[in-house]
Design a protein around this nucleic acid. Structure first.
Lengths: 344, 344
DNA sequence: CTGAAAGCGCTTACAG
DNA sequence: CTGAAAGCGCTTACAG
């Protein structure tokens, strides 16, 4: 019923091989023949059937996108945007992105995403923190994959990184330039390498400006070894503010935390940015709608997705290239929550 | 390299036809033979290759999920959750859900999602408001589809609806029972049928309790003919409150709007729920983290996804069934923003 | 209850 | 530059 390569061949008076050749832009076909075939394809609105092509080429045409379930279900819009970036990029090559989630108690024998079980993807993007066993599985089975915003210490995998260090450094420096002296860090678990890097940027900026005396870090940081949330932000800053009312700036490990910090500060009767300035990281959509609007380090999520796709694509079509890391740069966006101290 | 049906057949000493029969649980196969084949399949960890199976059966094994781009990029977590529900359900039948977006200026000749161009899906779920031309395309090409949280007046398509009317009715009734007398409606465009229904529920609840005098609706409602956002919520309630300071309750067309309403009320120096109570609709994640925590009508997003999948699945495997509408019921969740008036 | 054979719609050496 | 043929890994009538 749907038109097939045979219909095209018949109508063009050539063999299906020839049609296939022009379809795949390979081999030599007389210009005149090619034109004729092309116009017939156009005219009959012929589209090659994917499953047939896949069977013949032994490629799947699919790329998997695996996300820890918590990241998808929660307020976290971050990785959905990254996904969207991949989807955009994949359109050009007619790849499909299959999105699925894994959860914490991951057992490769039980919980393997079905597209992995059925060998139904040519490669996989892993978004954020994912189970190590999953990474090992991919590694062992030589399935091309790329880590997005995550890394495994001591291992050299294909990865897309965010420039966490410099983003954090610049954010904290801007607080210092505004005249802030007592700058807190509020964050979640350091299992996530991004958070660790942001903390490092925070520390180094303080050091560069000579603020980092003996017990600064212990005094002004609040980190809890759990996933980030508004809740820990709110809790953290309240605790800090109670013992250290002189705090006049906060750099948060991400926007989710920062949103909690905002409420925390306000609930203690302090003004933002009058009394204390706040900067987050990520630039998730709610950051624009908070009150005051959140200053943050903006991460180009769509670009990350695109880059992840590109790297994966190259890797799939050239399995011999060495694993590489690409770093995506970020931008400091000053909104309302971190204006200069003297003009609130 | 990967093990195929031939390997299994050889090892079991049968033909590939027989293996195929047990794989598909059809036809008669001697129990003893079946057992043997099954255990060999297990042992060799054999998985049939999807593309081969698809070629043979002329099915794609894919379902499309189409979302208006705005809904995906914005704060809107709603339809991502619905997607997740579909994905969960699809795992059981080894269907893949292909998620893509369309945008506003949709031209079926240009902007058709690639899985539609290539006939690569057995059916499609349309989430929320989508271009009419897209619906017409699917209808014309007899591609099974289901509308999720959307409907086309005068047309009888497969659809999953939210019980918007009753949810709204109950929410408003709860405000009335708390002693609220001047209850506003703040909302966005009525192009979205859900919002229209919620408004109807609001109106009927007022009427039932005899509150609906002549100009109540004109006086206390604020609706703007745009997509909902925090911004319109904030703007709307401020405007209403300025002319009508007696307002003591607000029912919002959704949580996004309600979040803006919360800020609006607070920025005018009024307390929630002391001075005015607020109820939203949807129960998106941020509703739990606002201050005060938002009372809302909770919509089971994962269930909606599951139900959409089921309906689509049935429709695909039995094209003759009549289009049907399934309504998902909702739950009123009272949190902090709508406590009783006398005990704030 | 089971096997031989045709077919699904492509691609890709291999001849010519 | 082009065609005939084999093959990708399955399913499905059809015999037996």
């Amino acid at each position: 019923m749907a038109t097939t390569i045979k219909d095209i061949a018949r109508k063009a008076g050539v063999s299906i091989s020839t049609v296939s050749l022009v379809l795949n832009r390979r081999g030599y076909v007389a210009d005149e023949t090619r034109e004729r075939i092309l116009s017939i394809i156009e005219e009959m609105d012929y589209k090659p059937l994917h499953s047939a092509r896949k069977l013949a080429t032994q490629k799947t045409g699919n790329i998997g996108y695996i996300l820890w379930e918590g990241h998808f279900s929660e307020v976290e819009m971050f990785y959905s945007q990254v996904f969207l970036g991949m989807e955009y990029a994949a359109r050009k090559n007619d790849y499909y992105i299959l999105l699925t989630t894994v959860n914490d108690h991951f057992d490769p024998r039980q919980d393997l995403p079905r597209f992995l079980q059925y060998n139904d993807v040519d490669g996989v993007a892993l978004a954020g923190r994912v189970p190590l066993d999953l990474i090992h599985y991919l590694d062992k089975h030589a399935i091309p994959f790329v880590l997005v915003d995550y890394e495994v210490p001591g291992k050299n995998y294909n990865t897309i990184k965010i420039d966490n260090y410099n983003g954090a450094f610049r954010a904290v420096e801007s607080l210092i330039e505004q005249g802030r002296k007592y700058i807190s860090f509020v964050g979640g678990t350091f299992i996530h390498p991004s958070i660790k890097e942001r903390y490092r940027g925070y520390k180094d900026a303080l050091e560069k400006h000579g603020l980092l005396n003996n017990s600064y870090l212990e005094t002004y940081s609040y980190c809890e070894d759990v996933e980030t949330s508004r809740a820990i932000g709110e809790k953290g800053i309240k605790k800090l503010l109670k013992s250290r009312p002189e705090i006049d700036g906060v750099f948060c490990c991400n926007d989710t935390t920062a949103l909690g910090v905002l409420s925390g500060i306000q609930s203690m009767g302090k003004t933002i940015p009058g009394d204390v300035a706040v900067i987050g990281f990520d630039d998730i959509p709610p950051a624009e709608f908070s009150s005051p609007k959140l200053s943050t380090v903006s991460v180009p999520k769509l670009d990350i997705g695109k880059e992840a796709y590109k790297l994966l694509y190259e890797r799939i079509h050239n399995p011999n290239i060495m694993p590489q890391t690409r770093t995506i740069s970020v931008d400091l966006v000053i909104r309302e929550s971190s204006q200069t101290k003297n003009k609130p």
